[in-house]
Design a protein around this nucleic acid. Structure first.
Length: 429
RNA sequence: GGAGGAGUGGCAGAGUGGUCGAAUGCGGCGGUCUUGAAAACCGUUGAGGGUUUACGCCCUCCGGGGGUUCGAAUCCCUCCUCCUCCGCCA
């Protein structure tokens, strides 16, 4: 949510930021409503003050036995009450209009974010590792025999439909190993606190993390109105909703491993083969809550945490800063990490780390207090560390062998009974 | 699922129709005392909004929403949350 005072104090900057995200100017319209809203607040409060004053005199008139005065004041209070009620309704209507406008406007990008229309305009800021030289033509993950032995899309379709998978044997073991390795690394090396959260949440949590009202169709809702989380960013970030934290509590750094659910509305026909884009997938998420002055450094730190996982797995990647046109709704700056997929002969997104500044904090009223200071909004950041399913794909494709087997990355072997290979028929050896 | 009970300031906890944004205690902050600290004593200490150059003034908030009343923390309705007991259950 945008800060109305900021818009008031610099409407041109607000519109300029919107323009960078491809939105038309809105400041004039917003400020007109704001002005009308404030005028109505003034009128409403004035009527309320008069009502309060008269109301105080009623008791005194009654006590002194002045029945005429008592009745006169009573009538006055009653009329002021009606007047005030009408004015207050007008205030609420204006506030609803204002909120309705603001809550669907995307966050303002930082100056450091490159302008651009789509992913073609993203700017690479880091590249690590060299894609392996294959003595054969590498194939996609679902075509690698050792992986194909454990991936069953037909059965998944029978149970649930398209964009689901049933995994068996070594594949699931590998996925579990990856998640464990990511969590353990974040906990022991990166200092994040492992957190376990609900995957079913209320409206408020979705709204507070800017998934509602605009992106409801991207997520699933239960019949009683709860939402299946599209990412554990939602429950993790919402842990601090409504709180006034002490500055000594910050930063808060959390990590969670959870199932994520996405309807993938609008991506029909995209990535339909394999398990790159699923309705249900696993993700290890990182969320940080910081003081405003610390969030830029925290984004760098978080990005490094995610990159560290890929480096430990010896998977080549590049990191890009998303341009204004490719950035998500709530982000001020986003780093995407793209892992090399030899089967697709390209880099594909495996992590996205964003700072929202105080955008989410305003929506969920998450604040902190410095010694002797007034409450201030925290900054919130979120990032994948990493998408487990996509990491599984990356391991399969990068570690595939000519005979159809898969070599297990060294750091994962201890999670897989010290096996070194997944054989062509899907056995650990 | 059934039956009860409860949600008040950072925390604990009074307040059951007006003088209550709210006693008291703890905690925090400032001060007196002290070489320093502790103790004791004194003072101070919620949030949001409107308005003002500013000092300040005004409005709202006692879990959320609605209602009764001249007047609501207090009465009524409703929702949410927590607790206790029973039932069921991973």
């Amino acid at each position: 949510m945008h800060d109305i005072r900021l818009i008031r104090s610099n409407p041109d900057a607000f519109d300029a930021a919107l323009a960078r995200r491809g939105e038309g100017p809105r400041a004039q319209e917003i400020l007109a409503i704001d002005e009308s809203r404030r005028a109505k607040i003034k009128a409403s409060e004035g009527a309320q003050a008069e009502r309060n004053a008269a109301s105080k005199l009623v008791g005194a008139a009654k006590a002194s036995g002045d029945e005429a005065e008592f009745e006169r004041l009573r009538a006055l209070v009653a009329s002021k009450k009606d007047e005030q009620a009408a004015l207050e309704d007008a205030v609420k209507a204006e506030e609803a209009r204002l909120t309705g406008l603001l809550e669907v406007l995307p966050n303002s990008p930082y100056d450091s974010v490159p302008d651009g229309a789509d992913e073609a305009d993203n700017v690479e800021i880091n590249r690590w590792g060299n894609p392996r030289n294959f003595s054969f033509t590498p194939v996609e993950h679902f075509e690698v025999p050792a992986a194909a032995a454990g991936l069953d899309f037909e059965t998944a379709a029978k149970i649930s439909g398209s964009r689901f998978v049933v995994m068996k044997g070594a594949m699931v073991r590998l996925q579990r190993a990856l998640a464990q390795f990511m969590l353990d690394t974040h906990i022991t090396k990166h200092g994040l606190t492992e957190t376990w959260v609900p995957v079913i949440v209320r409206d408020e949590a979705m709204y507070g993390t800017d998934k509602l009202p605009k992106f409801g169709e991207d997520s699933y809702q239960t019949t009683n109105g709860w939402w299946l989380i599209p990412t554990s960013e939602v429950p993790l970030t919402y842990t601090v909703a409504g709180d006034i934290l002490s500055d000594a509590d910050l930063p808060i750094r959390m990590t969670a491993h959870s199932q994520c659910f996405r309807s993938e509305a609008g991506s029909a026909g995209k990535d339909t083969t394999g398990m790159l884009r699923q309705h249900q997938f696993e993700k290890v998420e990182m969320v940080s809550i910081t003081k405003p002055e610390d969030s830029d450094a925290e984004l760098e730190r978080m990005t490094k945490c995610a990159e560290g996982i890929l480096e430990a797995l010896d998977l080549p990647y590049r990191t890009v800063v998303l341009c204004t046109g490719d950035m998500g709704f709530g982000a001020r700056r986003t780093h995407d990490i793209e892992v090399w997929l030899p089967g697709q002969n390209t880099y594909r997104e495996i992590s996205s780390c964003s700072t929202t500044g105080d955008f989410q904090a305003r929506r969920m009223n998450a604040r902190f207090r410095r010694a002797d200071g007034k409450p201030e909004f925290v900054h919130t950041l979120n990032g994948s560390g990493l998408a487990v399913g996509r990491c599984l794909i990356a391991v399969v494709e990068n570690y595939q062998q000519e005979d159809g087997s898969i070599t297990i990355p060294a750091v994962l072997q201890r999670y897989m009974s010290d096996a070194q290979t997944i054989s062509t028929d899907g056995q650990l050896i």
